[in-house]
Amino acid sequence: MNPLFLPKLQDFLSGVLFCVVGAVTIAAASQHPLGTAMRMGAGYFPLFLGVLLVVFGVTVATRTMLKHLRQGQNIGDFSPARLLRTLRRIVDREAVRKIVLPAALVGVGVLAFAGLLGSVGLLGAILALVVISGAAHHEASWRELLPLGAGLAVFGVGVFVWGLGLPLPVLPT
């Protein structure tokens, strides 16, 4: 892939994203009464925003394609099949290992915290968060994470529950 294509790919995909979100906004806004200009209904302002989003999205995407054309490049680079192929080349196995896996671990850790706090209490939730999310770093080691998690759990209870008086459960209920 021509490296110069990457910024264009960014712009084009953001344009598409804005269009999609705009379309969803329009669809959701039209569930509500529009009202009149004098007495606007719940749908008036959001509908307008949805239209704006689509307009901006289309502008961003077309400008990118026009730029590509002006540089004498093949407009077919923006066909869905080509785009998919380009994307697949960028998101290779190496990228999955370096990006998707860490992001997933951070996410799982955060979700574990959210899911555990109510039932297991703050100590366990912080320990789970630190150990799972902490494993996302490429230099992570259990020997460091376990004491860090335990220390932070105790520290968190001390600061948030005892110090600040937040009403959080400490131990399993």
Partner: peptide, 10 residues
């Protein structure tokens, strides 16, 4: 970053 995450989540 785990420390930051703890503060964020709590």
């Amino acid at each position: 970053y785990p420390i930051i995450l703890v503060f964020c989540c709590v």
